[in-house]
Design a protein around this nucleic acid. Structure first.
Lengths: 245, 245
DNA sequence: TAGTGGTCTAGACCACGCC
DNA sequence: GCGTGGTCTAGACCACTAG
C-alpha cells in the first residue's frame, strides 16, 4: 500500500481518527462531498477506510462538534449547510434589545468592483493588481436601518458575482451553493467609534454619534480567508451578544 | 437499591454517561470536589459507579469540553481552576490593537455595599431589601486606563468580602478559593454609547466620546447568576475579540 | 516500573426515521 | 422491518508522568 494512503503510518504522532477526519475534510474541500450530501454510514466508512467503527465515530463526532457535519439518528450524516438557522445562530450576533434572534430585513444593497487595497491584498492573500468585489448593504433589525455592511471578496474566487443580483439576504448560502465556498469560522474585532457622515445618514443618527464597528474576517474549510466585512451598527435598539464558555 | 441512586433507572431517556456527569457536577458544586482536586481514575470511577470505563470516559470528555475538568495523560483528571491562563482566555476579550493577549494592569479599585436595585434583585434572584457589594475598578491594557468596571455581587453569597482587600486582579480566583463559587460561563451584551462624565475623566477622553459598554452576566456551576458586571472601554487602542465557530 | 489518560477494536443493544 | 446513528460494554495496547 502506498505510504500516503496508509492510515496507520504514524499511529502515535497522528491518531487514526484524526487521519480519518482529515480525509473527510479533504473530500468536502474538493467538492466530492458538497454541502447537504449524505455521507456513507459509519459501518461503510469503517470498511472503506479499514478502521473500526469506533474510530470513524470519533472522527465524525469531532467534525459534528466543529459544525462541519450534522448527524440525525435514524436518517444519516450530512455535510453541514448554511441554512437559515445555522447562519443566523453561528454568524449573526446582533439582537434586538429585549427581543429574540431574528433575520435582519434587507433595506439596500449595491455591488461594485475595484482594485484591492494593500490591506485587502494582505488579508485575502491576493497578488498585486488584483481586483475585489465590494458589497454595500443596509439592513434593519427593528423598524429602521441599524446596520451598514461593507463586504470585500476576491473577484477571482467569486467570478460573475453580478450575475446573482439581487444578492440574497443569506449571502453565505450563495457562497456555498454557487461557488463551493463554505464559511466555517470567523473572527470579529469590535470597537465603539463616532459615526461617519455617510453611515450616520443611512442609520438616521447625527455624524459622530457612537456606533459599533465590527471587523469580521471569515475563513473557509481549508483555513483560507474568504471574506472581509466591516459592519457599522447603531446600538440604540440593538446589541451584540457574545457567549463566553 | 434506592431509585435515586440507581444510575440505570431511565436508560433511554437519560443516558448513563449524563447521569455520571451530573453526579460529578453535584460533587463539584457541593464542595466535595473543590477546584484543583484530583478525581479518581477512570477505572476507579467505573467501579464506584458500576458502569463501564468507556461510559465514565464519555462523561469526563464532555466535562473537559465544558472547561469543568482538565485532563493530563500520565497525571490524572483535575477539577478546573481559574488560573491566570484560563481566566484570561475564557473571560477576557479585550486585546491591544496589533498586540497579543495580556493581563490588564490594576489602576484603581474601590469596594462598597448598598441596597440592591430592582434590576439587580431580578438578575441575582434576591429578596426585596437585599444588599449587594459594588466594586469599582479601573484597569489599563496599554499605558493608560482603558477600562472602567462596575461589579455587583450578592452580599449574602460573598460575606466579609471587605476582609480580602485589596481585591486581587484575578477576582474569579478569589470567588473560587474564598467562597467556593466557580464562574463557568458568561453572556455579554455590547453597545457603543457616549461616555458618561465620570467615565470620561477616568478614561482620559471627553464626555460623549464613543465608548464600548459591555454588560456581563456570569453564571456558576449550578447555573445561578453569580456576578453582574458593567465594563466601559475606550476602544481607541484596544478592541474586543469575538470568535465565531 | 507502576499508574494515568489516550487510542483502537469488536460487538451488543436501543431509539429513531422511513418505507 | 430495515438501516441509521446513539449508547454501553470489555479489553488490548500505547504514550506520558512520576517515583
Amino acid at each position: 500500500m502506498a505510504a500516503d494512503t496508509d492510515l496507520k503510518a504514524k499511529p502515535g504522532y497522528n491518531p487514526l481518527y484524526r487521519q480519518v477526519k482529515q480525509r473527510l475534510v479533504d473530500r468536502m474541500a474538493s467538492g466530492d462531498l458538497p454541502p447537504g450530501a449524505v455521507l456513507p454510514s459509519e459501518h461503510e466508512l469503517a470498511r472503506e477506510l479499514e478502521v473500526s467503527q469506533g474510530t470513524v465515530r470519533k472522527a465524525l463526532a469531532e467534525l459534528t462538534a466543529e459544525n462541519l457535519l450534522v448527524r440525525q439518528q435514524g436518517r444519516g450524516t450530512f455535510v453541514a449547510e448554511h441554512d437559515q438557522q445555522r447562519t443566523l445562530f453561528q454568524f449573526f450576533k446582533l439582537r434586538p434589545d429585549g427581543g429574540s434572534i431574528q433575520w435582519p430585513e434587507p433595506v439596500f444593497s449595491r455591488l461594485a468592483s475595484r482594485r484591492a487595497s494593500t490591506r485587502e491584498r494582505e488579508m485575502l492573500e491576493l497578488p498585486s493588481g488584483a481586483t475585489v468585489w465590494r458589497i454595500l448593504r443596509q439592513r434593519a433589525i427593528g423598524d429602521c436601518t441599524d446596520v451598514v455592511e461593507r463586504i470585500t471578496l476576491d473577484k477571482a474566487r467569486f467570478p460573475d458575482l453580478d450575475a446573482h443580483k439581487p444578492l440574497p439576504n443569506n449571502i453565505y448560502r450563495l457562497y456555498e451553493q454557487a461557488y463551493g465556498q463554505t464559511i466555517v469560522r470567523a473572527a470579529e474585532e469590535l470597537r465603539a467609534v463616532p459615526a461617519r457622515a455617510d453611515d450616520a445618514e443611512a442609520l438616521g443618527c447625527r455624524p459622530g454619534h457612537p456606533v459599533l464597528k465590527i471587523d469580521r474576517t471569515a475563513f473557509g474549510i481549508t483555513g483560507d480567508v474568504i471574506e472581509m466585512r466591516e459592519s457599522t451598527c447603531l446600538t440604540d435598539r440593538v446589541h451584540y451578544l457574545s457567549d463566553l464558555r
